[in-house]
Amino acid sequence: MAAVTAEGPRGGRLVLSATSLIGPATVVVALGVIGPLLILFRYSLNDFDPRMLMIDALTPKNYIEFFTDPYFLAVFFVTVRVALMTTVICLILGFPLAYVLARTQTRFKNLLLIAVVVPLFVGNAVRAAGWMTLFGSRGFLSMTLMDLGITTEPTEIMFTETAVIIGIIAVNLPYMVLTLQSVLEGINRNLEEAAFSLGAAPLTMVRRVLWPMALPGIAAGGILTFILAMNAYATPVLLGGPEFRMMAPVIYSQFQLNNWPSAAAVAFVLMGTTLLLTIAASVATRQRFRD
């Protein structure tokens, strides 16, 4: 806005048009996001009684409960662990794929890009149903392993953390790949060749040239997938089963118990953690890039 208003004699009209352009979206965001957030934050400071439900108060009780109750703490650590695991695995799987997409000379590049995005066309629930047919003890994977004689016992992947991690990776990988691909594409191929001609073998080249140069993109892709994983709802519910708890489903179950204050507090812990780790990641990568 400041840059727009500094436009000189016609500045006044420009400000007006800028306002009219960003105005509607701002109103929607303010009413639809900030408003409910404020209300929810107020709720999180309220007290709760199973018989009288929400009681007006100003107490940190719900937050203290979250960080002292073993149940909530377990949920918290599982969530962060799953989010970190999926992010790291997405990065490991996504980087080579993004590199190939960034460097390919084929005419079918757009088709390849669409192929990366296609999984996102399938809804979360439908996708999870698909994974279920694969992961169950009598599912495709388990039966195939037994038929091939690789295992003798049924393999149970369904309703495990592994199933949830695989499921979330499947959702998040396209985001990671697309982010990395656009960053890698911006790195001139000559830089790779320069490294090769100076004596760097491919892996050394990646470590010394591509990786540090792509670091801002790696951070962006990592943050994106991390946020998505932290807040995953359908995948942990459908693939994790009733015993497996991540934060987003827990918030919902607290609502179902009519415990709005607790649900609101968990929601804010989730948001705060995501925000904190995101900021930490971007600060860390920025400093490393400056070295």
Binding site: E193, A194, F196, S197, L198, P212, M213, F289
Partner: peptide, 20 residues
């Protein structure tokens, strides 16, 4: 032999200095 085993010094048109 791949380029990294050839011991040739190459100067590119756009210099290709490592910006970082």
């Amino acid at each position: 032999l791949p380029p990294w085993k050839r011991n040739t010094g190459l100067v590119f048109q756009n210099y290709a200095l490592f910006p970082h």
